[in-house]
Each structure stands twice: as C-alpha cells, then as structure tokens.
Design a protein around this nucleic acid. Structure first.
Lengths: 250, 250
DNA sequence: TCAAGACAAGTGTGATCACAGATCAAAATA
DNA sequence: TATTTTGATCTGTGATCACACTTGTCTTGA
C-alpha cells in the first residue's frame, strides 16, 4: 500500500511512524471512571451526576453521559428508577456472589495461563512483584492507589496469558463491580491489622508465581483463591458485625 | 407513608395502582438491538451505522449512539479503528473461547439452580418445553425466531433460579456474543440435517429437566454442556471445511 | 407548630448543528 | 489506459439547547 516509490528512503530504512492513537474524549472519560471505580474512589451507594462528573473532569456532559451508559450496562454502576445513577451498595449476598464468581472465572483464567505462559511472560510477572516490593520498602505507609494499581497489573499480566479474549473482559467487569467493596476492605484492613498480615499478600503472590513456574494449575488456582478471598471474608465479618451499615437506602 | 387517612377506602380495599414504567427511547433501542443480535438478525462482520439503525428504528441518532456505546462495552459489537462499529467476525479461536466460557459459567449457573429450584419454578420450565412442543407440532418448518426465543426463555428460566445477580448478566453477555455465530449454525443446521437430529434438542432439554427434578447437578450440567456444544461443534466443522470464509477483513 | 402546596434549582433525555475524518467515484494527468 | 488527485457525500463526535421530571426549600394556611 506504499504510494510513494520515489522517496529517499528504502522500505527498510524508512523511519517507522507509529500509528497515532485516536482516543476520543468519551474513551478517556470512560477509562478514568473505570480507574476510579476499581481503585474505590467512589463510596458504595454514592450517587453520581452527569454534570458533577463533567465538572470534575473539565469536559462537557456528553462524553460523561455516554460513558455512564456503558458502565450501567456493565453493572459497574446502577440506574435508579429516578433516572439517577449510583455505585451499587454492598450487601452480604452481593459480596458472596461476587467472590464465588471471581473464584470461578479468575481461577479458570489462571489455570489456562499456567499451561500457556512462556518464560518471558513469567519474568514480566516477577518484575511487577519486584516493583511492588520496592514501593513497599520505600514508603512504610504505602499509598493504596499505587499498590492497588500494582495488584491489578500483577493479576492481569497473568490473566492475559490465558489467551482468552472472552474471559478477560469478564474479569475486568468483575473487578469493576467489586472495586468499591474491596477498597473499603483494603482501607479497613490497613487500619485494623498489623504489618505481618499484609505480608500475606506477598506470600500468596509468591506462591502463585511459584506454581506458575512449575506449571501447577491446581496450586496456582489455590493461591489465587486464597488471595482474592481474603478481603471478601474480612469485609464479610465486618458487615455481619454491624448490619446497620449504610447498605443502600432504596 | 399513607398520607390520606380520610379516604373512602380502607387500606386493604384501596385499588392498587401499579407503578408506571418509565422506559426511555434509548432503553427500547438497546433492547431491540440486543434482541436482534441474540436472534442473529445481523451477519458476522456486518458494519452498523448510527444513522442507518436510527432510520430503521424511526428514531433520531442520539438513542442509537448511546445504545451502541453500551453494546461496545459489552463486546456485543466491536469498534473498528475507523470509529465504525461492526458485529464481531466469527473465527475458530473465538468459537472455542466462547464455548469454553459458556460451559464454565452456564454450567455453574445450572448447578446452582439445581440446588435452589422450587417445584413451582420447575413447573414453569416444563411449561416452556410444552409450549415449544406445541410450536414445533403446529409448523413443521418451525420459524427460527420463535424457537430461538423459546430456547432463550427455557435457559434463562433455569439460570434465574441460580439466584446469582452476577452470573446472569454475564450469561446474557455471552449469549449476545455468540448470537451471531449460533444463528448461522442454526440456519445451516436446519438445511443440513434431517428431523431426527433436531429431536436431540428436545432430548437434551428433557434430560436437563429430569436432572433438575432429581436434584442432580452433575447430570444437569452434563445435559447443558451437550446442548450448547452442538451448534458450536457443528459450526466448527463447517469453518474448518472452508477456511476462506469471510471471517473478517480487517 | 406542623403539614401541604408553590416555587426554584438541578438533572436526565433527546434533538439539532458544526466539524473533522473516512470513503468512494469522477475527472484530470502522465 | 493506468494512476493520481480532487471533490462530494457519508459518518462519528461533541457542544448546545429545549423539555420534562425530580428534589429541596420556602411560604402559606389551618
């Protein structure tokens, strides 16, 4: 498809121009809302208004409204009968439901990844853990956003090796839905427990990498289940302790 | 919250007013596009334009564009780099990927439903099968849309008994994604095989109901797997036979 | 003092328009 | 005749506006 045969460069020497990415405003708004949801920047049951979000992001209402529509169809936020949207409240049933489904799907993705992962890909996963260790050692009181991002990077680096373009969007949707919950858990976690508890996070991750290394699907899935179950069971107990939480006043 | 104590009716005798549903145009467009996608009214690799769809549905572009945005985020249609959208092409990898995931998730839903289903709910499922038999006996050359709708009704009647509000949207998303493929399969199916093959559909469905009746999760899951695997394996062979199909000319 | 109605501000929805990029066909040039 | 260029048309994107509905507050009345 090269149209100019009379250039000074041959095909191989020609400077490679990267295709410019054409990201629309709507895409950026959508990505930012996703990030905020996964990192737990919004409270459960919090009401989101189109104009409010548009003002915060310094855009007009149109991209926000379309991004919200996409998030509604993913069940990342829910549309109230008043036509207003809110981030879903966290209930006991929803918590159990989310955890069970995450174990099912992410467990399958990890098992698939175990069989297909190359040494090079495994090294990338190790790099993420190394970076995480560095962050943790630098700041004793680690910032949650950074660690949450690394945690996400770690998991999806593995999931991507499953090679399933159907499973991965589903896992993203699950993270989106459990984001507001687990953030709440992570926050309470950091206040409640000592540092030896947080060492468990690294422990499970290392167990997972080891299982991946020796191509052990069952071991990898087990480590994953233990890893993602922890915040859920923690939050579950907290919710059982005080049932009069603001679970959603519909 | 009853504010008028001086009415002529007591609380129990007062005529019950049903809450009026407030369905927006966008919701109707979205539902219609979903239906069309699941029923396979669009070809794989077919490009969809906002204005074209708006004209067909006799609305303006705005509801269509927002509905398309929602479908994009569900991977029901895909956004090309040209900013145009098309229904995803069917490839061998995608076919296997979809089937594996559907077996995983719908199998789990059926297993859950087996344990939670009541006799009343099981009777509703039987009713669907009876209606299906009636349709099939009335018109030898059954119309596919009607049968596809009944098939969907049958499956989701069961899935709903799983009680999982996380699994069900995922299954809907999977049906949305495999709709264009299986329709293709169903069409080719009806032309290729004799009527004794189509009897298998009813056979698996009855096996599933029987397993549900005796609360046998393994049996129910097995019948389900056999049921949903059939069109996929059929289409798989067809795709292997002629690889030069118009699979997507990106 | 309290409740009911009225007013005002806020919000989602859908239509319309301007603009930029894509696509395709006709015309002009080598 | 083949290739390139030009032009028109189509299409998605985002802004702005009008309209309907919701919500909160204030006033008025008993």
């Amino acid at each position: 498809m090269q149209k100019h045969p009379a250039t000074a460069f041959s095909v191989k020497d020609r400077p490679q121009l990267l295709p410019i990415e054409r990201e629309t405003v709507q895409d950026r708004v959508y990505a930012e809302l996703r990030r905020a949801l996964i990192c737990g920047l919004f409270e459960p049951s919090q009401v989101l208004t189109i104009r409010g979000l548009a003002d915060q992001m310094m855009t007009s209402t149109m991209p926000v409204r379309e991004a919200l529509g996409r998030l509604i169809s993913e069940k990342a936020v829910e549309a109230m009968p008043n036509r207003s949207v809110r981030v879903p409240p966290v209930t006991l049933e929803r918590l159990d439901d989310l955890l069970r489904t995450r174990i099912l799907i992410e467990g399958e993705a990890v098992a698939l990844a175990t069989l297909r992962m190359t040494q090079r890909e495994l090294m990338l996963v190790r790099d993420v853990l190394a970076e995480w260790d560095e962050v943790r050692s630098l700041s004793q009181r680690g910032d949650f956003d950074r660690e949450a991002t690394l945690n996400q990077k770690f998991h999806f680096q593995i999931y991507r090796c499953s090679g399933s373009s159907v499973l991965i969007p589903m896992i993203e949707s699950l993270w989106l839905q459990s984001g507001p919950c687990t953030r709440y858990a992570a926050y309470a976690f950091s206040q409640a427990v000592a540092s030896d508890e947080t060492r468990d996070v690294a422990y499970y991750h290392r167990a997972m990498v080891d299982a991946l290394d020796r191509r052990d699907p069952v071991g990898a899935r087990g480590a994953l289940v233990a890893d993602i179950s922890r915040p859920f069971t923690f939050l579950r107990e907290r919710l059982l302790a005080e049932p009069a939480q603001s679970e959603g006043e519909q």
